[in-house]
Design a protein around this nucleic acid. Sequence first.
DNA 1: GTAAGTGTATTATCTATCTATAACACTGTT
DNA 2: AACAGTGTTATAGATAGATAATACACTTAC
Lengths: 123, 123
Amino acid sequence: MQFDDKVPIYYQIENYLYHQIVAGTLQPGAKLPAVRQLAVDLTVNVNTVQRALTEMIRQEILESRRGRGNFVTQDTARITALKHRLITDYIQELYTQLHALRMDDAEIVAAVQHYLQTRGNQA
Amino acid sequence: MQFDDKVPIYYQIENYLYHQIVAGTLQPGAKLPAVRQLAVDLTVNVNTVQRALTEMIRQEILESRRGRGNFVTQDTARITALKHRLITDYIQELYTQLHALRMDDAEIVAAVQHYLQTRGNQA
DNA sequence: GTAAGTGTATTATCTATCTATAACACTGTT
DNA sequence: AACAGTGTTATAGATAGATAATACACTTAC
């Protein structure tokens, strides 16, 4: 995984894992790789992984079971809420930026559609 | 101005000024406030302002005239290019994130439209 | 009970960012 | 020439983030 050097790595890891969970790559109740393994996979320090996980545990998206591992919450409602939070945050960010460029709603939608037609097609 | 503590301040200032220029708040050829004044306005250190400006000068969006001030380029084509770069970058970021959440093009557009209808209306 | 696998915590060190402060260099006005 | 206004550079210190290394705590399988 490649990181943006403008943003703390622990924060990027946190968001990366949120994505994995929301996208279903990490299912509710699933066990995460061991922290040391995650550190190897992401080529970062164990402490950096731990920092990301600690915040996710605080958010109750992950549950830590000492000696056993970290597990994705079984609370699917919470995961759904997370998904909507992520989506809203991303769109709000886009809106804030484009609106600051004096683009109105119609122009924003048009720009998004143009981008989609030009590049990334279908999932 | 409020800063996001997850991103370097100099980088946020750089983007803030790009927005001012693209939005026309800072017209082509216009003189920027003095670096010391900008530092006061933004409540940051002069060196932090300077770091942002240095990069903008390197990008030839700003022109520095020692003893006189910093000026927005007169090259409107360059500003237009900057605008398109910013727009594309923001949309691409949105696309990357939402696509990672397994949303297809139609869902992305629908989500954007839903957001616009619910919140921020017209410019 | 021992070992292997797991999460958690601590300490020291390095680097990037930001600040404070000061100095230097140039331009325009008087 | 002097001064005020401007950009530019340098030094020292503070803080946050990341790393490396180590130790500790708990769980499961043997």
